[in-house]
Design a protein around this nucleic acid. Structure first.
Length: 217
DNA sequence: CCAAAGATGCGCT
DNA sequence: GCGCATCTTTGGG
């Protein structure tokens, strides 16, 4: 399990640092797992963040110590965030890649598919099973009422070191309305797993490296 | 209490 | 790329 002080850094540093981290979630006797492949940083000081809209009970976890889980609902699905060092700052976990290893075997992957099928009931392609903030929460059975305001729990849901990216893609956040600091380059994508992100910057028509996105590492 | 607003997801073109 | 279904939360916009 990652040490609590890992989360105690600026959201713009924590967001890329979380790429490759493996989320482990126990459902019954099975441990489900996904590696984080896409994150977004949100600061209280800019207008896209929920914390910038003011303090309410549901937003309170954003203001709690670094590492506090903040889950909220939007358009019918939950989203997972981690509070960062600055009060009101947080990182949105935007996409993951189903992670299969000794701890989480084929039966765990099947359980994730059952938790998050397509609307017609059929299975999603594996790389698309957690490729969205709500898709990830569904595949890991993470609900707002159960987890928001809590911290990781080694018995039920926690994070540990995983496949570090050799390169990181940095670009603008998705779904931010005009006038809400939509230009800030606070989205980070795992360079080797960009196809599992909600949107792969490398496949965007007309996007040029160094202009619409940057590559580091 | 209820209309409106989402840090979405999907299917169709 | 674009329109629409979806559905919980919010606060009176």
């Amino acid at each position: 399990m990652l040490r609590p002080d890992f989360f105690d850094q600026d959201a713009r540093e924590l967001a890329p640092a979380l790429l490759g981290v493996v989320l482990r979630r126990r459902v019954g006797a099975l441990w489900l797992a996904a590696a984080i492949v896409e994150t977004e940083a949100y600061l209280r000081s800019e207008r896209a963040s929920h914390s910038s809209l003011g303090r309410t009970p549901s937003r309170e976890p954003m203001f709690m110590p670094a590492g506090t889980l903040y889950l909220y609902h939007s358009r019918g699905g939950p989203s997972l965030n981690l509070s960062a060092r600055g009060e009101g700052d947080a990182v949105l976990i935007k996409a993951g890649l189903p992670w299969v290893d000794e701890r989480s075997g084929p039966r765990s992957l099947e359980a994730m598919h059952r938790l998050n099928p397509k609307r017609d009931g059929s299975a999603r392609p594996e790389r698309r099973l957690c490729s969205g903030q709500s898709l990830l929460c569904r595949a890991l059975d993470l609900r707002v009422a159960e987890w928001s305001g809590r911290t990781f729990d080694p018995e039920a849901f926690y994070a540990e070191a995983g496949p570090r990216p050799q390169s990181i893609l940095q670009t603008r956040r998705l779904g931010i309305p005009a006038g809400r600091d939509e230009h800030l380059p606070y989205r980070f994508v795992h360079g080797e797993h960009a196809d599992a992100a909600t949107e792969n910057p490398l496949r965007k028509r007309g996007w040029v490296e160094g202009v619409e996105y940057r590559v580091s590492g």
